[in-house]
Design a binder for these strands. Structure first.
Lengths: 293, 293
DNA sequence: CGAACACATGTAGTAGAGCTACAGGAGGAG
DNA sequence: CTCCTCCTGTAGCTCTACTACATGTGTTCG
């Protein structure tokens, strides 16, 4: 965006609630403020300075100091940061799922966690690599999506977007088939290797085989590692630390969105007549409702 | 939450930017304000009343009237609403994808759209139906996930969460297999029928067959329709109007998150020893890195 | 065709918000 | 015990958001 200090959108983003925990560097009375904020962030977002000061049992300047200590320009700035964080969903760290949560709470917590996690992922996406991936896909004659387990589903999803990519796309359920396809690949093939861990051996083997045949390899992964080193282009998706039971979903969601970005990017660059074909196809699809989705 | 008029979190939620388009009911000079807000919402969120008035070329009370006309309590309230909406991502309606968008813009727009769309979906989820679905799954002996095309991938993903559900889960790539499975289903079987349109004939047939055999049917769909009428429990996910090329993804993402909610809900209710088994399994998985994801 | 009305807009004024400079007081070191 | 340092609250200032009122403009009806 801009490089001025004046925030265009509400400020450079650093998690607010996270920092309330490590009270190092916070003065004693400021911790009272932190406690109130951590306890009822929603209410605090609607409070005035005097109200928050009263609720915490301190004076107004203390609240002010609390804000500046946290790195905000002032109380207003702090409130916006808080509102922003609340809007995007309370990170699960602060609202861990409990065994006796009713379904309504469960829905809220999981959606919140998903939203805030996707939000963070967005900020970590390397657009240069995305651009490169789009170019590689544009130059390719065919694409092969490879992944195992959860990542396999992501690969299949990507392959379904073949019409957008405008080239033949495949994602084999069986990795042996993928290996065979990679073994006969040529310079015109792009292999998109999906692996959350970045070290799935089967996927690595396939990527390596493809590369030896002169094919291009795009890595879609969650961590640095052997797959990234091997690939011509690496899309690394940072998600929140995976600590919970239901975790792998987040990275998969982030992957899906990124595949969307790639597909859309490629489709747009293929020019107007390609987009027209897509529109016609969509129209046709909707007319023959009842057999597809 | 609370039932008081005083907003706990920043206000009852109604899209702000959407309403800037239909300028019916807006006074001429208020439209100048609306234009500025629609054009540079990010900057506006950081402006004071005087600044916005200056930017729009009107007086401060006009800005004030603009806010109240939109249904906000005042300028502050409006700013919070705006900030909230910006935080969660600008809906694509207001930042449609252009052919010449650079990748960075593409990433931002698509992520924004996804986030805001998921945000809306969250608000429309019927928690009573979620609770019912969880109960049905808890009572079941086995689960069968059915879907075609994009929804098929969703079904597969759900089936992969079988360990969480704690019962045998299947999702056949071939719908004939699904039909056969449904044909031999009994009262202990839960069929989760996934269809974005809610009128996919093949899926409907399978659901109907299962129901005739006494199985329970949970519908996971995007619209009211025959599937919902047929089902014992209907999870209807409202997403933004599907107008764009890359649309189906949103509904699929929403579906994934909801499946997450179901899986987590079921797992939690199965009791501590089930959770322990899960933890052990996860640990085992991470140790044998290199073959799974 | 003109007068009166209603509506839209800006001007003036007020209470309170956020922020700053300064002084008092508690706690620890010498 | 005394001094120094850091923390906290008091007092005051500026500018903000908001309200009441007056002016102007467009429209309708006699």
């Amino acid at each position: 965006m801009t490089t001025t200090g004046r925030p265009e959108a509400p400020g450079a983003y650093e998690p607010v609630l996270d920092r309330l925990g490590d009270q190092t560097g916070l003065r004693p009375s400021e911790r009272k403020v932190a406690a109130v904020v951590a306890e009822r962030p929603g209410e605090v977002a609607a409070m005035s300075m005097a109200e928050l000061a009263g609720a915490a049992g301190v004076s107004e300047p203390t609240v002010m100091r609390f804000c500046t200590t946290l790195g905000f320009g002032g109380f207003q700035d702090f409130k916006f940061g808080l509102a922003r964080e609340l809007a995007v969903g309370t990170p699960v760290t602060h609202s861990a799922i409990e065994v006796d949560d009713p379904p309504a709470t469960l829905v809220t917590k999981i959606f919140d966690h998903t939203l805030s996690s996707l939000d963070r992922t967005r900020r970590s996406v390397d657009t240069a690599q995305v651009e490169r991936a789009i170019e590689l896909l544009l130059a390719a004659d065919e694409a092969l999506f490879v992944g195992q387990g959860a990542s396999g589903i992501l690969a299949q999803d990507a392959a379904q977007k073949g019409v957008l990519f405008g080239i033949p796309c495949a994602a084999h359920a069986d990795l042996h088939q993928s290996f065979m396809a990679a073994a006969v690949a040529g310079p015109g093939t792009v292999v998109v290797a999906v692996s959350h861990t970045g070290r799935t051996t089967a996927v690595l083997d396939i990527a390596r085989a493809a590369k030896e045949n002169g094919a291009t390899v795009i890595a879609l992964t969650g961590e640095q590692g052997p797959l990234v080193e091997l690939a011509d282009c690496a899309l690394v998706l940072q998600t929140l630390e995976d600590t919970n039971i239901y975790t792998p979903t987040i990275s998969r969601l982030a992957g899906l969105v990124l595949v969307d970005v790639l597909a859309t990017g490629v489709a747009l660059r293929r020019g107007p007549e390609h987009l027209e074909r897509l529109a016609r196809m969509k129209e046709g699809l909707s007319r023959f409702r009842g057999s597809t989705d």
